[in-house]
């Protein structure tokens, strides 16, 4: 119990610090207790942040949601289809294909960023939305999870029945298999969402147009300018607080499904 309390504290204190810090004006930020409130300026600070450079921060938030939300959604569908196919169809080279995909899990995203940059340079597509979006769709771990779940939770008999009733393969996948795999899909989606959100190096290398930045890169950019423009420090802190909210919301909304998914896997 004590261990849990200490761990909880360990995880929550930085967020608490961030929240308290974001509510202070810049001179109180350095001169007052970092873990307790001074004058509550949170909303004024948010106003400053949104007004700074014509609301570029909102643009970054929107970009982040498009990159991560879009890539996670589409990537989950792709991973589910791939995993389902590997689990339910027999074809030559299936295990080989699966092993190749699986070995992709071992390659860190950072190691791929530079080769990807050179590839995109060849087709003149760096510094575009697609330069970040397309590589983010790939999720080998999702394929692995989807295959395991499809094997465990989609009975062959059910697919047979669907085929006998005249359902095409694609329809069977979307109408039957995805329903059964839903908890797994939520898990894949969350993993993928976090992975793309945290993949900082790819946009850093690919993008030089400020209007395309995700929020992580944008805030980092500001943070590197703090010794030139010290006012930015406050904005970075408020920006960091706002930028973690989508992640918190995604987890709070989806954790119900996630727990179901983990439980379902355990029983099988």
């Amino acid at each position: 119990m004590l261990v849990m309390a200490v761990c909880t504290l360990y995880f929550l204190v930085p967020i608490w610090w961030l929240f308290v810090g974001a509510s202070k004006s810049s001179d109180q930020f350095t001169s007052t207790n970092p873990l307790w409130f001074a004058d509550f300026d949170l909303f004024a600070n948010i106003g400053d942040l949104i007004a700074y450079r014509d609301g570029v921060f909102l643009r970054w938030m929107l970009n982040s949601l498009l990159y991560t939300g879009g890539a996670a959604l589409l990537g989950t569908v792709l991973a589910a289809m791939c995993g389902y196919a590997l689990a339910k169809y027999r074809f030559r080279g299936r295990e080989l294909l699966f092993n190749v995909v699986l070995s992709g899990v071992l390659v860190p995203a950072t190691a791929l960023a530079l080769p990807l940059f050179l590839l995109f340079s060849k087709v003149d597509a760096t510094n575009t939305f697609w330069a970040v979006f397309l590589p983010s769709l790939v999720n080998p771990f999702g394929v692995y999870l989807a295959r395991i779940y499809a094997t465990a939770s989609v009975p062959d008999e059910l697919l047979e029945a669907a085929r006998i009733d005249g359902s095409g393969e694609i329809r069977t996948f979307f109408k039957v298999a995805t329903r059964l795999m839903f908890p797994a899909l939520v898990t894949i989606f969350l993993f993928h969402f976090v992975a793309v959100w945290n993949n900082f190096l790819l946009p850093l290398i690919m993008l030089s147009d400020e209007r395309l930045f995700p929020v992580t890169l944008g805030l980092y950019t500001w943070n590197t300018q703090v010794n030139q423009i010290p006012e930015l420090r406050g904005l970075v802190i408020i920006g960091a607080l706002l930028s973690i909210t989508p992640l918190v919301v995604a987890f709070l909304l989806l954790q119900r499904f996630w727990r179901n998914g983990l439980g379902a896997g355990a029983v099988k």
């Binding site: 850093l204 950019t221 590197t224």
Partner: peptide, 19 residues
């Protein structure tokens, strides 16, 4: 734009020189 030089922009320049 981008982060300050040592924060990543110089490395980007080197990558871009190569590409």
């Amino acid at each position: 734009t981008g982060p300050n030089g040592n924060g990543g922009t110089y490395q980007n320049f080197f990558n871009q020189l190569k590409a």
